[in-house]
Simulated assay, not measured.
Amino acid sequence: MLSSFWEAAGAKLAERWAAISAPALVFWLGGLLAWVRSKGGFHALKEPADWLAKQSTPAQITIVLMILLGVSASGVIIERLTTPVLRLLEGWYWPCFLKPLRHKLVEWKKAKATEDMKRYQELTPAVDAGTASSEQLTEHGRIALLQRRSPSPAPDMPTRIGNTLRAAETSPKYKYGLGVVSVWPHLWLLLPDTARKEIATARVSLDASVAACIWGVLFVLFAPWTLWAVPAGLGVAVVAVMAWVPSRAEVYADLLEAGFDLYRRTLYEQLRWPPPRNPRDERTQGELLTRYLVRGSDGTIPVWDGDHRSPP
Score class of each variant (00 low, 15 high):
77 I>R: 15
187 L>E: 08
88 L>H: 15
178 L>D: 03
110 K>Q: 15
279 P>N: 08
241 V>D: 02
168 A>G: 06
92 W>C: 00
224 P>N: 11
8 A>G: 09
86 L>W: 09
16 R>L: 11
285 Q>H: 12
247 S>Y: 14
132 A>K: 10
54 K>T: 05
17 W>Q: 13
34 A>E: 05
216 G>P: 00
89 L>A: 05
54 K>S: 03
238 V>W: 01
284 T>R: 11
97 F>Y: 12
119 R>D: 10
121 Q>I: 02
206 L>N: 03
228 W>Y: 09
236 V>R: 06
108 W>H: 12
123 L>M: 02
22 A>K: 04
66 M>E: 15
164 T>L: 02
37 R>G: 13
171 S>I: 04
176 Y>H: 10
17 W>I: 15
124 T>R: 13
68 L>T: 13
203 R>V: 06
263 Y>A: 09
134 S>P: 05
237 A>N: 09
216 G>V: 03
218 L>A: 12
28 W>E: 00
168 A>T: 08
34 A>F: 08
307 D>K: 15
33 L>E: 11
100 P>C: 09
190 L>H: 03
163 N>W: 00
40 G>E: 12
281 D>F: 01
219 F>D: 07
88 L>I: 13
58 P>Y: 04
58 P>C: 06
149 R>I: 02
120 Y>Q: 15
201 T>S: 08
176 Y>A: 01
287 E>K: 15
112 K>E: 14
62 T>N: 00
153 P>H: 11
212 A>L: 06
4 S>C: 02
279 P>K: 15
8 A>R: 00
253 A>C: 07
1 M>G: 14
200 A>M: 10
209 S>M: 07
201 T>I: 07
45 L>N: 05
68 L>E: 10
170 T>N: 04
18 A>D: 03
108 W>C: 14
113 A>D: 15
312 P>G: 09
153 P>D: 02
127 V>N: 00
312 P>I: 14
82 T>P: 03
38 S>Y: 08
94 W>Q: 07
272 R>V: 09
105 L>M: 13
63 I>F: 00
130 G>D: 09
259 G>S: 11
298 D>H: 12
276 P>D: 08
76 V>R: 15
65 L>C: 11
189 L>G: 09
7 E>T: 00
86 L>P: 05
280 R>D: 02
288 L>E: 03
253 A>G: 12
204 V>D: 01
251 V>Q: 05
306 G>Y: 06
149 R>W: 00
293 L>T: 07
26 V>R: 00
194 T>M: 05
293 L>E: 07
290 T>S: 04
74 S>H: 12
189 L>D: 05
85 V>M: 07
76 V>P: 01
56 S>G: 07
264 R>N: 06
194 T>H: 05
19 A>R: 07
207 D>E: 13
32 L>T: 11
